[in-house]
Design a protein around this nucleic acid. Structure first.
Length: 114
DNA sequence: GAGTCATTCGTTG
DNA sequence: CAACGAATGACTC
């Protein structure tokens, strides 16, 4: 073990993600905006590294088009199957690989200054 | 509906 | 300091 030295950005991503209640999901773009970043890619990268997994519920983050997005560093394959299982386990139902209830999409508060 | 393109940000060596 | 890569997003045909 070792404690990964996460930079401020990663800390923000994990912090915002950590404030997401169970049964709720958010998108990379929204999460990025919540932490003050305009790029969903930057958020995805931080999650992809996920030095705090499974501590960080990265499976609660999906793409803007309600698609699963990616998981475990893979955009498709069994990894998504795991992500889907986790989401379904939380009460978030998906259909055809897409979120069935977009109402579960939440907008994380702007984690500006705690 | 599908595919392609563009942009931005963070990370690392 | 510089270069590369990325779990996206949006647009167009």
């Amino acid at each position: 073990m070792s404690e990964p030295e996460v930079t401020a950005f990663q800390d923000r991503v994990y912090g915002a993600l950590s404030r997401i209640p169970r049964g709720c999901v958010t998108t990379y773009a929204r999460l990025g905006q919540s932490i003050g970043c305009n790029s969903a890619r930057a958020v995805g990268q931080a999650l992809r590294r996920n030095p705090f997994a499974p501590r960080v519920p990265c499976h609660r983050v999906i793409a803007a088009d309600l698609s699963l997005g990616g998981f475990s560093g893979q955009r498709e394959g069994a990894a998504l199957d795991r992500k889907l299982a986790l989401l379904v386990s939380e009460g978030v139902v998906f259909s055809e690989g897409r979120l069935v209830d977009p109402t579960r999409l939440i907008t994380p508060p702007v984690a500006r200054c705690r």
